[in-house]
């Protein structure tokens, strides 16, 4: 009865469960994270809220190199994942035919195994006595005492591998939606295959590129498993620092401040990226 008289309230009521969920599981934790990041003290004496901005100063001064490294690794992994995924997604979308679904299943097949196990498997693959290193040594691409495990290459490769499906799937979706008659129309209007790709297919897949790079880059920059299992302390990323500050050093305020800086940094980067790509244009052309 009440809703009959106030039909305008219905959309808000429908939103209510979602809003409640976000309040309980996002806003409240964010508040505590912010609150914690401004505390000082230690595990034994307890932590007090003291507006301890030092935590943020330390985040920038002491851990700057980790931030920069995370940015580099995540950026590199995103780029490589893109270069691998685009041709893959293109091929499945336009040439996959009746194998499309099977091929997509293969792309996400690694997800059937837990993240940790997959990364541990890479440890075996890249091991000093493993076949990959053996092969590379035989080809003299790696020196006699050269190794893959515990190098930057291994960490970036691990991140690339683990997040590749997040890149490939949005690319596939946006490419699959392209009406092939548009490509025919471009060729009809004197565009060679390469030109038709650059002028029609690529711009129309922009929403997928945008979504794919973000879905890869954002989790990759906070990743710590790959650096931990496939790298050395010299490859530690900001995720590793946060994890150890929280679990090992038990400096909760510092961990919280680092998390906040990371989040803010990602937000700024995403906004700049959206500006550059023109997410409005990107999402519109998908419609």
């Amino acid at each position: 009865m009440f809703l009959h008289r106030h039909p305008r309230l219905i959309p808000y009521l429908l939103l209510l469960p979602g809003i409640l969920f976000l309040v309980v599981f996002f806003l409240v934790p964010m508040y505590y994270l912010g609150f914690t990041s401004l505390q000082s003290g230690d595990l034994f004496a307890g932590y007090q809220f003291t507006w301890a901005w030092d935590n943020y100063r330390d985040a920038f001064t002491l851990y700057q190199s980790h931030f920069v490294r995370s940015l580099k690794y995540a950026g590199l992994a995103t780029l490589i994942a893109f270069l691998i995924s685009y041709p893959l997604a293109y091929w499945i979308a336009f040439r996959g035919g009746r194998w499309k679904n099977l091929l997509l299943l293969l792309v996400i097949a690694p997800f059937f195994v837990t993240y940790l196990i997959r990364t541990l498997a890479w440890k075996t693959i890249l091991a000093d006595q493993g076949i990959v290193v053996d092969a590379l040594r035989t080809l003299h691409l790696v020196g006699e005492d050269g190794r893959l495990l515990a190098t930057t290459t291994a960490v970036v490769a691990g991140i690339t591998y683990n997040y590749l499906p997040f890149m490939a799937l949005p690319l596939y979706v946006s490419l699959e939606q392209i009406d092939t008659r548009l490509i025919e129309a471009a060729e009809d209007l004197y565009a060679s295959s390469v030109r038709a790709f650059l002028r029609v297919t690529l711009p129309l897949s922009l929403p997928g590129i945008f979504a794919g790079t973000l879905l890869t880059f954002i989790p990759a920059i906070g990743d710590f498993i790959n650096a931990e299992l496939l790298g050395t302390p010299r490859q530690l990323m900001i995720g590793n620092v946060i994890q150890s500050q929280f679990k090992e050093v038990a400096d909760y305020p510092q961990a919280a401040a680092l998390s906040f800086v990371l989040m803010a940094g990602i937000l700024v980067l995403v906004l700049l990226y959206a500006r550059a790509v023109g997410s409005e244009r990107a999402t519109r052309s998908a419609a």
Binding site: E184, A185, D188, A191, V200, A287
Partner: peptide, 19 residues
Amino acid sequence: PPYRRDVNTVFQSYALFPH
């Protein structure tokens, strides 16, 4: 190939470039 023929096409459902 189509781009080397002096022919143009009006496609079914037009195929205008949406972007």
